[in-house]
Design a protein around this nucleic acid. Structure first.
Lengths: 257, 257
DNA sequence: TCGCGTCGGCTACCATACAAGTACTCCAGC
DNA sequence: GCTGGAGTACTTGTATGGTAGCCGACGCGA
């Protein structure tokens, strides 16, 4: 099968097919466009994306390594349900790394760093005005990445990002619910203010408060959407769809455009 | 090709072929049995291990994700040279997570936890007496994992382990050189002692000193074995072997036994 | 002796074929 | 109506075939 034009064009930008599929699926899972529990058939995905099973399969292996999908051999692959234990673990990792970075950032951050962070704050306020949650998520990611880079430990960001991915799936539900954008942005600003004053102790306290607010939201969500979570002690055997009308991964032709 | 008997037996224990190959290669890379810069051909590895290219390839993808190999499309896959930037990043991650865990361990560790740690100390002293560096590496890994588990954040260990892998490749050279086993074990004991006394501040200080000793060793190694490192700014294009006598991955039949 | 084009062999990437195993479905027997 | 078992359609895992691309060696020409 010849690669289609859209994919070929995309390949010029992004890289090989595996990376494209990986990012596509990762984005859809974190954005909850693929709900926890959804079956992801290698064959179906390959057909929908117009590629062979190989790159799809390799993407799923990477996603399994990130904990975003669960692979049951000879049974199926499923978007992982949110395990509360994983949430707690991700929170620990994130808090440890971000606060450790902040410690160095207080000493090393330049005026340019602070200015960049403030620019992101402005953009976040703009997203708030437009009530654009998607844009805010993007900017939140950038903010925390930029804060980490200011500490000189930008290389460690991918680790935080991976932990954050677990949290974000739950947050994605909480944000439109609580409409706490204003509160979150205020906390971001507090962190930047105290960072600029080189006040480690209060900056650390502000960042911790910020990160834990996110965690507390997740617990509220758990009560509202129990079907997206899995009990910690019972690892939930997934059920296959009925024989007819199997569920597919999303709107067709994802790689084209 | 039918799977060979040894592999089939091993599969019963370990899982599927991909996981076996992955662990095998990972162990060899971290143990420096596969030196940085070594070419890893999918075809050669598959032939040597008596499996097809598919699980080998999938293993290499995972190893690339861990930063243990570098894949250059259409050129080859190579055991990654040790990048000093990666070492520094791994050190940051490890220190942040282990000290954050220690903070909770001081409050949550049980007498059983402390006893287990002391048992590992005894085993380490035994390895020192036998001058068995391999055993010590294993026990060191267990010690730090157990310490993390005592904090209630054992789930975060895989992240530390992955960062530690980068450091261990360099440490593997430093240990027989400096013969610091006695010093390292003493530091381990200090941490346990202060943990048992629930003295967070001094325990934290002991653990940090311990972790940074490891890092300082790496810098000495860098002067002795520059060929295993790559300059940070020049990402070193790997060179293919001369036409004859290509280097292979190791002694044959690795999966049998 | 040096430079350039060509050719061969190798690479990882992608596509496809085969194998082993599971769960659902449906029908026979009670 | 209910239960049990064979059949079937699906699943992931593994093996293998083909393709584009890069590197290094070689030989021709200057």
């Amino acid at each position: 099968m010849r690669p289609k034009e859209g994919l070929h064009a995309a390949r010029a930008r992004g890289g090989n097919t595996r990376q494209l599929v990986h990012e596509l699926l990762r984005t859809r899972i974190i954005g909850l466009r693929l709900a926890p529990g959804t079956a992801l058939s290698e064959n179906d995905l390959a057909a929908e994306l117009g590629v062979s099973r190989t790159p799809v399969r390799e993407s799923l292996i990477l996603l399994a390594d990130e904990g975003l999908v669960d692979v049951y051999p000879q049974m199926g692959t499923f978007v992982s349900r949110i395990r509360f234990a994983d949430i707690a673990s991700a929170q620990f990792i994130r808090e440890a790394l971000e606060t450790a970075a902040l410690r160095d950032a207080v000493e090393r951050a330049t005026e340019r760093d602070v200015a960049d962070l403030r620019a992101l704050l402005d953009a976040q306020r703009d997203a708030e005005r437009r009530a654009d949650a998607e844009a805010f998520f993007q900017l939140d990611e950038e903010f925390h990445a930029r804060l980490m880079a200011a500490s000189g430990h930008g290389d460690a960001w991918p680790v935080v990002s991976q932990a954050k991915a677990q949290l974000d799936r739950a947050r994605r539900l909480s944000l439109p619910l609580t409409q706490q954008l204003h509160l979150l942005i205020g906390q971001h600003r507090e962190v930047v203010d105290r960072l600029e004053r080189r006040d480690l102790e209060s900056a650390d306290e502000a960042l911790r408060r910020h990160l834990r607010l996110v965690l507390s939201d997740v617990e509220k969500i758990r009560a509202r959407h129990p079907e997206l979570f899995s009990e910690d002690d019972a690892p939930v055997r997934p059920r296959r769809e009925p024989r007819e009308g199997r569920q597919t991964a999303g709107n067709g032709g994802g790689l084209h455009g």
